[in-house]
Structure formats: C-alpha cells, structure tokens
C-alpha cells in the first residue's frame, strides 16, 4: 500500500498545528475541515494540539446553549480517514490542569524534545 502511494506521486509530511481554543473563534473548526480534505490526498498527516488547542479535544463539549455546532466528535472520526497521528504537547495539557483522560481521542503526549523533532521533520506546516 505504502509503495503504491510512493509510485502514485509525492508523499510529503504535513503537520497541522492547532493552538487555538474552539468556539471563541472559527479557526479550530475550519482547520478540522482542511484536515478532512487532506485525508483524500494520501499524504503523511500529523496533528499537534498545543497551547489552547488542547481544548479542541476536551471531552464533554455541549454546545446546545450557544447554538453552535459541536464538532468535537469529528476528531474521533479521523481514524476512519487514516489520520492517526495525533499529538498533544504535555506542557500545554498540564498547564491547563488536564490529562489524557480529559481528551475525546487517543493521542500521543509529547515532551518538548520529541515535539521539536516532530516539527523539524515536516515538509509542510499549516497553522490556522
């Protein structure tokens, strides 16, 4: 499968950096829309949640009272699109009094050095 992808065209490492909280601004929602489209391009996709971006994947979001669409379940659907590389900045998570148990998806929690390495190996970095 991987060989086929290589033959079919270029496979680049794309990273989507999520540093903004949901609802207060539209960045998180529209960023997720890009990721869903990106899945169709068979590139090597990673998502990183850091700073207030960790709030995007907080469990238990209930948006009825603000009449906005709760898009957090969509993060759980990413797996079906073969987007499985979800990373969270450990420091950001801890600073906000949260742990992996508070998150709606399975993620890999990264310390600073691992995060530096991950960013450094990317070909394209999209931040919204």
């Amino acid at each position: 499968m991987e060989d086929e992808m290589m033959e079919g065209g270029v496979v680049k490492k794309f990273m989507y950096v999520n540093r903004k909280a949901p609802y207060g601004t539209i960045y998180a929602l529209e960023s997720l829309e890009v990721v869903l489209i990106a899945a169709a391009f068979e590139q090597d996709v990673s998502l990183i949640f850091m700073d207030d971006g960790v709030f995007q994947i907080k469990k238990g979001q209930k948006t009825d009272g603000v009449d906005m669409k709760n898009f957090s379940p969509t993060y759980r659907a990413l797996e079906m699109y073969d987007i499985e590389k979800l990373y969270v900045c450990k420091e950001s998570l801890e600073a906000r009094g949260m742990s992996e148990d508070d998150l709606i998806v399975d993620v890999e929690v990264l310390e600073r050095a691992a995060l530096q390495d991950l960013m450094d190996e990317q070909d394209v970095v999209f931040s919204f």
Binding site: G9, V10, K12, F14, E33, V34, I37, A38, A40, F41, Q43, D123, V124, V125, F126, S127, F128
Partner: peptide, 19 residues
Amino acid sequence: GLGQLIEAGIQCDRVVVFG
C-alpha cells in the same frame, strides 16, 4: 475547494502561512 491548498503544499518547495 480546500484541495487546492493541499495541492499547493504538495507542489511547492515552501508554504508560508500568514494569519
């Protein structure tokens, strides 16, 4: 569509984000 953004990422040597 958004695919045009991804395609730019694939085709270009560099992508620069302004936001």
